[in-house]
Write a protein that binds this DNA or RNA. Structure first.
Length: 165
DNA sequence: TATTCCTGTCCTG
DNA sequence: CAGGACAGGAATA
């Protein structure tokens, strides 16, 4: 059975939950209610043994510091879960620098599938590692913010924070 | 602006 | 295996 540790804390965007397996971070969730965040985690990993560990090797404070200043890279291992296609999208996403944005069409082009625009959007939406996989930096080609798993308002604030350094 | 069509991947029955 | 959902995009009126 898989073993997952998690902790919750507050950051500039509200509550944050970070969870990790022995391979690395497997979830970073944002929200307004810590209990709801835990419930979301347990729903995602139904067959895992999940325990609360508010510190787990200072990872929580690193995650919170990263969320408050996403310009600096997060140097923690990630335990990515996804199909081959999703991993390609996420890898391309991590090439996008803080303060920059790309369109879904541009992202699709970068992974060699320029017509798979909607599929790319779906892969972004499937990401569970908020900010570490910067899906908030993907916007519509016409400049609209489009959607965000953790709320368009948080997406807006993240981009604003990154733009202003 | 709104409607319509095309699109790739994932999920469900 | 079929059908539907979707954080898109372009063409049309």
């Amino acid at each position: 059975m898989e073993h997952i540790r998690f902790g919750v804390a507050t950051c500039e965007l509200g509550w944050v939950l970070a969870a990790a397996t022995d391979r690395g971070l497997c979830a970073i969730e944002l929200g307004d209610d810590p209990a709801a965040l835990e419930a979301r985690l347990r729903a995602q990993f139904l067959d895992a043994h999940i325990v609360r560990d508010p510190d787990f090797g200072h990872w929580m404070e690193q995650v919170v510091a990263f969320l408050n200043a996403p310009q600096r890279a997060l140097s923690l291992p990630l335990d990515l879960r996804g199909t081959a296609f999703q991993r390609r999208v996420w890898a391309a996403l991590r090439e996008v620098q803080a303060g920059e944005t790309v369109s879904y069409a541009e992202l699709a082009a970068r992974i060699g599938k320029p017509s798979a625009v909607r599929a790319v959007a779906g892969a972004c939406a499937a990401n569970h590692l908020a900010v570490a996989i910067p899906c908030h930096r993907v916007v519509r080609k016409n400049g609209d913010l489009s959607g965000y798993r953790w709320g368009v308002e948080r997406k807006r604030r993240l981009l604003e924070k990154e733009r202003n350094g």
